[in-house]
């Protein structure tokens, strides 16, 4: 298969503009810590770690048309696993143990919670999600002996990988690799029969049931995928913030991922990535000048985006503005078409 028919250039078909864009962006992310200050590097690392949980929200939103406020549970679980094992009761700081452990715990908790939360859709799901985050919050807040209560756990040492102690820069590259790996995994998932089944469920429940899709099981599986993403990111976020407190479980923290996904635009696969960067960047910029106002500013922005462009988000706006340039890059990979 010689020529790539879409671009009309003589290239093998597996090389297209999207792949080139991915490689270029990854290369930029890989070399940028060599040129910027430590502070900016931490900020970019945080953006990278915000991507997987935002993808969780994105999957539930774009495939199932539900709002997933409960992402903070899994971030919190991952963070507290890291804080307990690598900080308070120092057992191990080996990432090869922490990350799979957090993954398993997140999947287990998501499986159990999915039975209760995913029972009904619409506002029932959203409210039950908020309720679960608050239940976890009060649990962590009140178990003062174990979790440190509202003081949380600080003083978390940097992790090690293959027995080698990682520096701050090493942590950055681990975050980059993990978040890139999860993005590629999500891309694979979105092009799988699983995603088609979820879309069928959100399109027409009765039809989906009658052609034999296990509706409840599939919904729960989507919830598990979203939670696993957040759980993995939670471990690295704990090392990045160097502090874990009950606010990790607070419902507004979960709502921030919904806001990030909406800002990025849930119609596009790049939406969560754009959203995570825009959200964390905005939070940083606004809170530099007006420390108390960043929630207000971001809330207003999200509200305006929902009213004006709906699911298109910043990605859609940029695409409209620079459509001709981006058309060649073909970034507009639609994952949801509004049937109603």
């Amino acid at each position: 298969m010689g020529a790539n028919t879409r671009t009309g250039r003589m290239m093998p078909s597996y090389i297209d503009d999207r792949l080139i864009a991915t490689i270029v962006l990854t290369a930029i992310a890989a070399v940028i810590p060599l040129f910027v200050s430590e502070y900016v590097r931490t900020l970019i690392q945080r953006c990278l770690l915000w991507i997987p949980p935002t993808f969780g929200v994105y999957i539930i939103y774009s495939l199932l048309r539900q709002v997933h406020f409960a992402q903070s549970i899994f971030i919190g679980l991952g963070s507290y696993i890291a804080a307990f094992l690598a900080g308070k009761y120092f057992v191990t700081s080996e990432l090869l143990i922490l990350l799979p452990l957090s993954l398993i715990v997140s999947i287990g908790v998501a499986y159990v919670l999915g039975i209760f939360i995913m029972r009904r859709t619409g506002f029932y799901f959203a409210i039950m999600g908020i309720a679960v985050t608050m239940a976890f919050w009060s649990l962590v807040y009140k178990m003062r002996q174990i979790t440190g209560g509202s003081d949380g756990i600080s003083d978390i040492k940097n992790p090690s990988l293959f027995g080698i102690q990682l520096g701050d820069q090493g942590l950055y590259y681990v975050s980059l690799v993990v978040s890139l790996g999860l993005i590629l995994l999500m891309r694979r998932i979105l092009h799988s029969p699983f995603s088609l089944q979820l879309r069928a469920i959100s399109g027409d429940l009765q039809k989906a049931e009658s052609i034999g899709i296990p509706v409840n099981g599939m919904r729960r599986l989507a919830f598990i995928v979203a939670g696993a993403n957040a759980g993995v990111a939670g471990v690295l976020l704990a090392f990045s913030y160097n502090y874990v407190g009950p606010t990790t479980f607070a419902w507004e923290f979960g709502a921030h991922f919904v806001q990030a996904a909406i800002i990025g635009g849930v119609n596009y696969f790049v939406g969560p990535i754009v959203g995570a960067f825009v959200f964390v960047g905005l939070e940083f910029l606004v809170s530099t000048w007006f420390p108390n106002l960043w929630e207000v500013v971001i809330g207003v922005i999200v509200a305006v985006i929902v009213v004006t462009v709906g699911e298109e988000g910043v990605t859609g706006i940029v695409k409209d503005l620079f459509g001709r340039t981006l058309k060649r890059a073909n970034l507009e990979e639609r994952t949801y078409s509004d049937g109603k």
Partner: peptide
């Protein structure tokens, strides 16, 4: 409804 939940939760944060 999805829009309402997202937007009003943002409004609550505002």
């Amino acid at each position: 409804d999805v829009h309402r939940m997202v937007a009003t939760s943002s409004l609550l944060l505002v």
